[in-house]
Amino acid sequence: MTPLLDIQNLSVDFATRDGTVHALENVSFQLARGETMGLVGESGSGKSVSAYAVMRLLGGSARVRADRMISGGVDLLTATDAEVAALRGKRMTMIFQNARSALNPIRPIGQQIADVLRVHRAMPRRAAKQAAIAALAEVRIPDPERRYHAYPFELSGGMCQRVMIALAFASEPELLIADEPTTGLDVTTQAVIMDLIREKSSQRRMSTILITHDLTLAAEYCDRFAVMHAGHVVEQGTTADIFERAAHPYTGLLMKATPHGASNLSDLAAIPGSLPDLRRDLPPCRFVHRCAHSAPACAAALPRVPLEPSHEVSCHMPWKVSA
């Protein structure tokens, strides 16, 4: 079956005053219909840039190259801006990190949802209003008729986040990119929001990319994972591949830094070193300076080692995960 999203060897560079930032290099992943993929890694590893590239939202300073970049049958490399605009917000939508600043501050939230319905689903004004109220109710906003007229500043962070989700779902997208949708929310609200995303994925066969640095959360909701470090996808596989048979040393370190399951603070270990400066000339493996298992072979070109049909790692010494 053709995947909904097919990204092959995506590279993104940014031209800045201080030199060219090699933000992504040869990032490849596919996403099937109805599938949820977790995109994990430290801040600065390229998770959001990948998402923005897929949404074609990167600004003028970005240079995007790829062998293939197809979403829902549309070639994102050759499509015109108008063609992408027709796709964006309708067939692919994004939940942004900070909901309050992503919403229009001077337009009532209900109308913002109705706008989406009128533009993308050609609903008449009155029907759009009714559907927007239903959408607010669906994300469990109490008293949706009254809240339809509320402005973002009148709502709590958790409620803005839910409005953002209602907005993303309003056009019934095929692809949802959720960029840290629950960071900073209470665990209880987080659970409600994640359950909603899961419900939609199974009901409408919506595909989801969940960007997060919370591995424990992602493990609960994702079918597959891509682990990113310094602009590379260092490992990808099913949730079981990643959590039970992690093959890249970085994946192992990321898990050792996650508080869940540890009974003692000393069980946790920080990832040594820091991300390399992406403006410099980088070695083929961008993790080599932080890696405890690096060997002379690591200076050679970065391989993509298939371990199983579902599991792939970019490492010369897979499985050497520190125990």
């Binding site: 430290e42 801040s43 640095h213 919370d214 591995l215 370190l253 990321l254 830094a257 996650t258 508080p259 603070l265 000393s266 946790l268 270990a269 920080a270 990832i271």
Partner: peptide
């Protein structure tokens, strides 16, 4: 903070 930095600060 990021998970990795969080560990260092908690410790």
């Amino acid at each position: 903070l990021d998970v990795s930095v969080q560990v260092v600060i908690l410790q």
